[in-house]
Amino acid sequence: MKKGLKIFGIILAVMFLSVVGYGFYLYNSLTNTVDQMHESIDRPVSDKREKEVNMEEQEPLSFLITGVDSRGDNHSGRSDTIIVMTVNPKEKSVKMLSIPRDTRTEIIGRGFQDKINHAYAFGGVQMTINTVENFLNIPIDHYASINMEGFKGLVDALGGVTVDNAFAFQQDGFTFNEGELFLNGDEALAYSRMRYEDPRGDFGRNDRQRQIVDAVIQEGAQFSSITKAGQILSAVGESVRTDLDLNGIWAIQSNYKEARHNVEQMEITGSGKRIDGIYYLQIPDEEVNRVSQELRAHLELDTSNTASSQ
């Protein structure tokens, strides 16, 4: 089984909401890091929007965060983690949705239905964006992908993260007791990976993924993290890819950073089904539409439109 970054959303925490705020004295290091991370994709403004988001006017925007089981600079493979994050700076709020990797939906550009995480293997981040937009009927404005090594390195660069564990379990040789825990990179990866001891399976694992995302957001925003900036930038540059350039990152830092104080974790649910011997998660249309309408409202988009049928 793939052991991807179950929490790559963490990059948003540091890159979009924290790292770039460390100050102009890091400007040269930051510029080099952003150049290393930057990978634009050839796509027009989403057809789910009438016009491109104006970040200077603090219009709500969305991100697709994908976690890929890869090493070093390699970002190929399946996206074992898919997180949609919407940010509304006027409401000072963030909504974060994990899409289960086994979700069955149409893979845009392939003409058939499959597990949503296969879109990345078929057509990279571009096909994943198109597929997620079609599934949820929302625009995806920007993306970031992060690999497993980057996840562990980023948590370690921050000096670790603190989580509140709901019940005791073991995973990958680590024991996680109930209550408040302080985790290093290896421990955080194992913590986010567990699902077989959780009665909620993938849904429980998604909760732990988002829990660590929020922990990284809060840790990355602390003033004490300034002294760790070099390590953080190094970890991010080696393992993160995004379509945002330096100007875009500065605009987000300037106009959206306060939204991090109010992060709402969303969930989408369905039931398992085997089709031709393969397990899929089937999500009812009414559940897809419920989540779609909530995200569209947060993005200040027309909520009279409904998501496409799977």
Score class of each variant (00 low, 15 high):
Phe174Arg: 09
Asp172Lys: 15
Glu187Ile: 01
Leu154Trp: 03
Asn147Gly: 09
Pro139Asp: 07
Lys152Val: 13
Gly173Arg: 12
Thr162Trp: 05
Val132Arg: 08
Val132His: 08
Asp202Met: 14
Val163Phe: 03
Pro139Gln: 07
Glu178Lys: 10
Phe176Asp: 03
Glu149Gln: 08
Tyr196Ile: 06
Asn130His: 10
Gly201Arg: 10
Met194Gln: 15
Phe151Asp: 07
Ala157Pro: 00
His142Gly: 03
Gln171Asn: 12
Gly160Cys: 03
Gln171Asp: 12
Ala157Asp: 06
Glu187Leu: 02
Arg195Glu: 04
Phe176Ala: 05
Ala144Leu: 11
Ile140Val: 11
Arg195Pro: 05
Glu187Trp: 02
Leu183Cys: 02
Thr175Phe: 12
Thr175Ile: 11
Val163Trp: 00
Asn177Val: 05
Phe135Tyr: 11
Pro199Tyr: 10
Met194Asp: 10
Leu183Asn: 00
Thr175Ser: 13
Leu183Arg: 01
Gly201Glu: 13
Leu181Gln: 08
Glu187Gly: 01
Val161Tyr: 00
Gly150Pro: 07
Tyr196Pro: 01
Pro199Asp: 14
Asn134Gln: 09
Asn134Pro: 02
Thr162Tyr: 03
Thr162Leu: 04
Val155Ser: 02
Asp156Tyr: 11
Ser145Arg: 05
Pro139Ser: 08
Pro199Thr: 12
Gln170Ser: 15
Leu181Asn: 06
Val163Glu: 00
Ile138Trp: 09
Phe174Gln: 07
Ala166Ile: 13
Ala188Glu: 02
Glu187Asn: 05
Val161Glu: 01
Gly150Asp: 04
Asn147Asp: 06
Ala166Gly: 09
Asp141Lys: 02
Leu158Gly: 04
Gly204Ala: 15
Tyr196Arg: 09
Pro199Ile: 12
Met194Thr: 11
Ile138Glu: 06
His142Tyr: 12
Ala168Phe: 11
Ala166Trp: 13
Ala144Phe: 02
Leu154Ala: 12
Lys152Asn: 08
Leu181Gly: 04
Leu181Thr: 04
Asp141Trp: 03
Ile138Met: 08
Leu154Tyr: 03
Glu178Ala: 07
Gln170Asn: 15
Phe169Asp: 10
Gly201Pro: 12
Asn206Arg: 11
Gln171Glu: 15
His142Met: 05
Leu154Cys: 09
Gly173His: 14
Asn177Gly: 05
Ser192Phe: 01
Asp141Glu: 04
Glu197Ala: 15
Arg193Gln: 05
Glu180Asp: 02
Leu183Tyr: 01
Tyr191Met: 03
Gly201Asp: 13
Arg195Ser: 04
Thr131Leu: 08
Arg200Cys: 11
His142Arg: 06
Asp198Pro: 12
Phe151Val: 07
Val161Trp: 02
